[in-house]
């Protein structure tokens, strides 16, 4: 059957295809490895028991919620200690606890955050330990 207004219909379909297949063109020929975060900071190497506050799977999914609850606990409730699920006690604080071990922001925090297009607002107040040196 005849296609009416052939030019404009084909042009429209080309625009549609270009829009929906945009990621295919953008990523063509790339082999993208998931981000590798570096955990071998001097502080971590010194630890006898290389464990974070909670287990890795929990931290991967929930670290932002944990940090938010820490902030609220310290700033609003004046509670400064956190007891993890396995009973260990930590001082709540990004600079005071997290960054003591994970002092390599650019090779730890940023690796995943850049990959996922996330811009956390931690650094509006906290100082990046790499910049202190």
């Amino acid at each position: 059957m005849k296609l009416y207004n052939r030019g404009i219909i084909i042009a429209g379909i080309v625009v549609f295809l270009a829009a929906v297949t945009f990621p295919f063109w953008y990523d063509r020929g790339k082999t993208i490895a998931p981000p590798a975060i570096e955990l071998d900071t001097p502080a971590i190497q010194k630890l006898a028991d290389k464990r974070c506050v909670e287990d890795t799977a929990f931290m991967r999914d929930n670290h932002m919620k944990l940090l938010a609850s820490w902030r609220e606990s310290v700033v609003r409730k004046n509670v400064h200690t956190y007891t993890s699920k396995d009973g260990r006690v930590f001082e709540m604080g990004l600079t005071g606890s997290c960054l003591k071990c994970h002092e390599n922001k650019s090779r730890f925090c940023d690796r995943c955050h850049d990959y996922a297009g996330v811009k956390p607002n931690c650094w509006n107040c906290h100082i990046n330990p790499e910049e202190v040196l």
Binding site: K2, L3, Y4, R6, I9, I13, F16, L17
Partner: peptide, 12 residues
């Protein structure tokens, strides 16, 4: 999507 557009394009 393309099929629907082409089928509409064939209608006078």
């Amino acid at each position: 999507f393309i099929h629907r557009i082409l089928s509409w394009g064939r209608l006078p």
